[in-house]
Design a protein around this nucleic acid. Structure first.
Lengths: 196, 196
DNA sequence: TGAAAAAATCGACTATCGGTCGAAAAAACA
DNA sequence: TGTTTTTTCGACCGATAGTCGATTTTTTCA
């Protein structure tokens, strides 16, 4: 009763790879079973539909990306470093570059959007905790924290994820962050370096 | 040489209706030609692909929605009323309610996103003009106007288009608008009524 | 160990879909 | 009228997601 789980992970791994390479729509079930060397019936023994498989692949990707963020919130660090760390953990790291690069190719925009959307849901409460910590320390001053954090994350991903943004976008975003969280002017400039 | 244009408009009308009813993916070319009572070859005489037809349908929807906004910018009105008018023209009006209602159904999320994205492209310069007017009159004070306007529109559509938002979302958005544009606190409260 | 039960695999088959194409009908033109 | 252009037709194609009953492999447990 364990062989099944291994096969399922194998199929998820193959699908993940091919989805990134060619996009979800352009990857057929036949492509996946060809690489796995199995019959169609076997595939549908593990996944009800192709769409459901996509859900599970996205779940895998989310899990990887949020693990670091969760730990940062718990850590003993200055608030600014926590924020920087969480943001950094969501941006493509060195070894993830091919992934992020693949994700922003046009044929992957739908996957990209879905990953981002679920990522925001997870990160809003984490970042909100940090902002509350900042308020207790007097570096921030605002109410309705989760709503503010969500809007910041929304603007951030819509503006910077596609890669086509200017220095003026960054400047406005920093200004916006300071004003929305009630931080002193200039104190959030470190965000520039994280986006660059 | 005119019959063709009428037929094309008829097909666009039918497609528009069915896309809203069932979503783009769930509407087959066969569905459309069945309602139109024509053969498949005739359909492909007017449209190269189903995707291209979607483009034209979206173009129709955009055209309707932006006409009012364009005229408001030119009009002789106080800045606040222009902003209110533009925002109002983008929100679902009474007779458009079924359209917006249909657009936010999950099977239409892709159409919705594409409409919204093109809408933002068109509205950013319009609203930027109005903000500049406001700056000359001393009601606003900020730089990088188009960037700020775009972020406001982005947050607005991401937050309010789906219909599931709270009073706190609205409060934060009003606060954010005032701070981003450099308006005096309390002067943008009229936005509340427009979103409601 | 061996037989029954459960889990896993197979692949032919189906239905649907977007799209093609050459021929024919209808309309416009001369 | 004859000719050319526009429009319509529908059979056909290749690809695709998904089904299903038969078969093999693995697990269970007496």
């Amino acid at each position: 009763m364990k062989k099944g789980e291994r096969r399922k992970q194998e199929l998820l791994r193959i699908a993940y790879k091919q989805f990134l390479q060619k996009g979800y729509e352009e990857t057929s079930v036949d492509d996946i079973i060809a690489e796995a060397g199995i019959a169609k019936g076997t595939y549908y023994y593990y996944f009800e539909t192709k769409e459901q498989m996509l859900e599970e692949v996205i779940g895998m990707m989310i899990g990887q990306e949020t693990e670091a963020a969760r730990q940062i919130v718990q850590a003993q660090l200055p608030v600014h470093q926590k924020i920087a760390g969480i943001i950094a953990s969501l941006r493509p790291s060195r070894e993830e570059e091919p992934i992020e690069g693949a994700l922003m190719r046009p044929e992957n925009s739908m996957m990209h959007r879905r990953v981002r959307s679920r990522l925001v849901e997870i990160v809003v409460p984490l970042l909100s905790q940090v902002v509350e910590e900042g308020i207790r320390q007097g570096v921030f001053a605002c109410d309705n924290i989760p709503e503010r954090v969500r809007m910041l994350l929304t603007v951030s991903s819509e503006t910077f994820d596609e890669g086509r943004f200017t220095d003026r976008d960054v400047a406005v975003f920093v200004d916006m962050t300071e004003k929305l969280l009630g931080a002193r002017a200039g104190t959030m400039g470190f965000i520039r370096e994280l986006i660059r």
